[in-house]
Structure formats: C-alpha cells, structure tokens
C-alpha cells in the first residue's frame, strides 16, 4: 500500500482536470442564463409548498446540490418536529 501511494502521490493533475471539467460545464450554463441561482429558486419554492401544509422553521430545511458530470442531484432534507407531525395525523 505504501509503495502504491508512493507512485500515486503526485498525480493530482487528473483530479484537477476532472473537477474543472465538471465545474465549468455548469458555470458556462449559468453565464448563458441557464440555471442561475437554481438552488435558491428551488429552495424558495419548496419552502412555499411545505408552508402550505405545516410550519417548519427555515433552519430545518437543508437543500444541497451536487453537480456531477452527467447527472446533478438535489438533496432536500426536511426536519419535521414530532409535535408538528403529530398534529398532522389524518385522524385530527
């Protein structure tokens, strides 16, 4: 393993290349007016939908974007306090 890492140690350039390719593919669409502030827009709209049904503090919603070469993922993590969840039961 140490021998392997010795040979691998300095070849960081391919990583740089790949990171740049992914990043720039996205940034070019932003400059072209494509997905400017997409995350901010999505966050706002998703919050509005949630607010229609329950009151969740802003801080309990985490939205993350992971830009990949061919696929990007949007991760929405909503923490619903138990008290709100209980009051939402259909029986109520």
């Amino acid at each position: 393993m140490s021998l392997f890492s010795f040979f691998k140690r300095n070849t960081s350039a391919p990583v740089a290349r790949e990171r740049l390719q992914v990043l720039l593919a996205h940034e070019r669409t932003i400059v072209g007016g494509g997905e400017s502030d997409l995350v901010a827009i999505l966050r706002e709209e998703i919050m509005a939908v949630i607010a229609k049904h329950m009151s969740v503090p802003q801080d309990n919603v985490q939205i993350k974007m992971d830009r990949g070469a061919s696929v990007s993922t949007l991760e929405v993590d909503i923490e619903i306090p138990t008290t709100i969840a209980a009051s939402m039961r259909p029986a109520a």
Binding site: N10, A13, R17
Partner: peptide, 9 residues
Amino acid sequence: RGEILKVED
C-alpha cells in the same frame, strides 16, 4: 509527473 495540469488538459 502529473503534479500540474498538462498543456493538452
């Protein structure tokens, strides 16, 4: 040596 990006990259 792969330490910096090559001109082709």
